[in-house]
Computed example of a mutant assay.
Amino acid sequence: MEKVNFCLSCGQRLETRNIGGADRKACPSCDFVHWGDFSIGVGACVFKDGKVLLVRRAQDPGKGRWTTPGGYIEQLEFIEQTIEREIEEETGIRARAKKIIAIRDLPRAVHNVYIAFSMEYLDGEPQADGIEVDRAGFFSWEEMQTMNVAPLTAWLVDVALHQTSLSGLVMDKDPIVPLEMYGLFRSI
């Protein structure tokens, strides 16, 4: 059971109720239900001249490991904006989100979902931000074999390199019905 004890809307002490077949913390005074603790991360495979953009983490988690650039989404930010911002902040590279190529689901105390994008390189030369990452560069698959690459990163780069079609989840910029403030993705 989560450690949340008070309503985030009105401050009332929460009670445990069975909602949707599971015990959940719920407010007896308003309609607030604590559905759980979640985090959503994003990462990206940006290729230039057959090499992928990697960063070496300067902080935990993963300090000293090479990963694809990424981070956690902000509350009022679309996920494609998050990954474009994170890449530029961490490396100085400007890239545009093309499609979602993979999703990693990690259920635990804080359930973590990680969405990986294929990105279009626009411009810039890799420069580590010196805070979250201490090195950045474009590396070949062969170079990666001698580096301290995080296992998830190796898997993501393999997914990106071995896509057998152009399909994936792409942003639906023209849905059949207007859905303002929705970030919509569809398979092609």
Rank of each mutant, 00 (worst) to 15 (best):
D105V: 12
D105H: 12
L106N: 14
L106V: 14
L106M: 13
P107V: 08
P107K: 05
R108M: 15
R108G: 14
R108Y: 09
A109K: 15
A109I: 14
V110Q: 13
V110F: 07
V110G: 10
V110L: 11
H111N: 12
N112W: 12
N112L: 15
N112Q: 14
V113Q: 09
I115C: 03
A116M: 09
A116E: 08
A116T: 10
A116D: 09
A116V: 08
F117M: 05
F117R: 02
F117Q: 04
F117C: 07
S118D: 09
S118Q: 06
E120H: 00
E120I: 03
E120L: 10
L122I: 15
D123W: 08
G124L: 03
E125H: 11
E125F: 09
P126I: 01
P126K: 05
Q127P: 02
Q127M: 12
A128V: 07
D129L: 06
G130K: 00
G130V: 03
G130Y: 00
G130C: 01
G130T: 02
E132F: 13
D134C: 06
D134I: 08
D134T: 06
R135Y: 06
R135F: 09
A136G: 03
A136K: 04
A136M: 07
G137V: 07
G137Y: 03
G137D: 06
G137N: 07
F139L: 02
S140E: 01
S140Q: 02
W141D: 13
W141N: 11
W141T: 12
W141I: 14
E143V: 01
E143T: 01
E143D: 09
E143I: 05
M144D: 03
Q145I: 05
T146Q: 14
T146I: 09
T146S: 15
M147Q: 06
N148P: 04
N148S: 14
N148A: 13
V149L: 04
V149E: 02
A150D: 14
A150W: 13
A150Y: 13
A150F: 12
A150M: 12
A150I: 07
A150E: 15
P151H: 08
P151A: 11
T153P: 02
A154R: 15
A154K: 11
W155V: 10
L156R: 05
L156G: 00
V159M: 05
V159N: 02
A160V: 03
A160K: 00
A160E: 02
S165E: 00
S165L: 04
L166W: 10
L166C: 10
L166H: 13
L166T: 12
G168T: 01
L169W: 07
L169C: 03
M171C: 09
M171P: 03
D172I: 05
D172W: 00
K173A: 13
D174Q: 10
D174N: 15
P175A: 04
I176S: 14
V177Y: 11
P178H: 12
P178T: 13
P178R: 15
P178N: 13
E180W: 11
M181S: 13
M181C: 09
M181Y: 14
Y182G: 06
Y182R: 08
Y182Q: 10
